[in-house]
């Protein structure tokens, strides 16, 4: 499964161990003139190859903006962003990353399997691109047998699983997720968290994951990137010293509670 899903990483990557995403002195400003608004200011951070980084911060501090900037959805005002050594635009056109939104954003007129196929039907495809099998992906996210259902017929959690399968179909090396489980109930969220961790370990995909939940950030992340607002900047880049594979029980350990308490205190300062 692991080899089947991840793109083969070239030896070059391993040799240099270059970060998957490298952000240097990033500035993002919206608007112009008097109404100009600085969303992000002098942000520098490296997301390691194959790493799982979760992003926390007060509402409006620029988490989504940072993620959207990596995905080439927001133009850069200053500084550099490099995704696998390329500009965000090149990375987007080369299908280096996939994006999972807070809403599943499935096309309601397409069946589940056709939604998963969508990335294969649009955009440019390099000659060497190899893609995952949509049916197999649906099986992996636990939706075998629902291939021909319409999105309306699924629950919120199931829809988000379809969105994740759709993101994985191009075998992206980087997965950008903006509060993907934010609209789900806690039980579903816990289940999907565990599945996401398993998936990450199986595929070796780099994941950058925005969340509002401190426990979720600590449970999932190898690192937690904490942003603060006015203007948006890095507050802390914290390594989470908890062993993998992690199970939900880890949240009851003293280590886990200590880290969440620390992050909560940090968040209050922001």
């Amino acid at each position: 499964m692991a080899a089947g899903l991840a793109k083969e990483h070239t030896p070059m990557d391993a040799a240099f161990c270059a970060p998957a995403v490298s952000i240097r002195n990033l500035d993002i400003r919206f608007g112009s003139g008097a109404s100009q608004f600085t969303a992000l200011s002098k942000v520098s951070v490296d997301i390691p190859q194959g790493g799982f980084v979760t992003m926390l911060g007060p509402s409006g501090c620029g988490k989504s903006t940072l993620l959207r900037c990596v995905a080439d959805l927001v133009p850069i005002s200053g500084g550099t962003v490099s995704v696998n050594g390329q500009t965000p635009r090149q990375a987007r056109e080369g299908r280096d990353f996939a994006f999972v939104f807070q809403e599943a954003t499935l096309l309601p007129w397409r069946t589940v399997i056709d939604n998963v196929r969508l990335p294969l039907e649009v955009g440019r495809h390099g000659p060497g691109s190899s893609y995952a099998d949509p049916a197999q992906l649906l099986d992996m996210v636990g939706l075998k047998g629902r291939e021909n259902a319409l999105p309306d017929e699924l629950s919120g959690g199931q829809r988000q699983r379809v969105a994740i399968a759709r993101a994985l179909v191009t075998r992206p090396r980087i997965l950008l997720m903006d509060e993907p489980f934010g609209a789900l109930d806690e039980i579903t969220r816990d289940k999907l968290n565990e599945e996401l961790l398993r998936l990450w370990q199986e595929t070796g995909t780099t994941i950058l994951f925005v969340t509002h939940s401190i426990p979720e950030a600590v449970f999932l992340g190898q690192h937690v990137l904490m942003l603060q607002s006015h203007p948006g900047r890095v507050k802390e880049f914290l390594k989470v010293d908890l062993p993998f594979p992690r199970s939900l029980k880890i949240r009851d350990t003293l280590e886990f509670v200590k880290i969440t308490a620390h992050l909560r205190a940090l968040l209050e300062e922001c």
Partner: peptide, 19 residues
């Protein structure tokens, strides 16, 4: 959000129109 999705997929205007 759907248009963002299509942009991430580098879809052309024509593809966005049809799909």
């Amino acid at each position: 959000a759907m248009l963002d999705l299509m942009r991430v997929l580098s879809a052309s205007q024509m593809e966005i129109l049809w799909k």
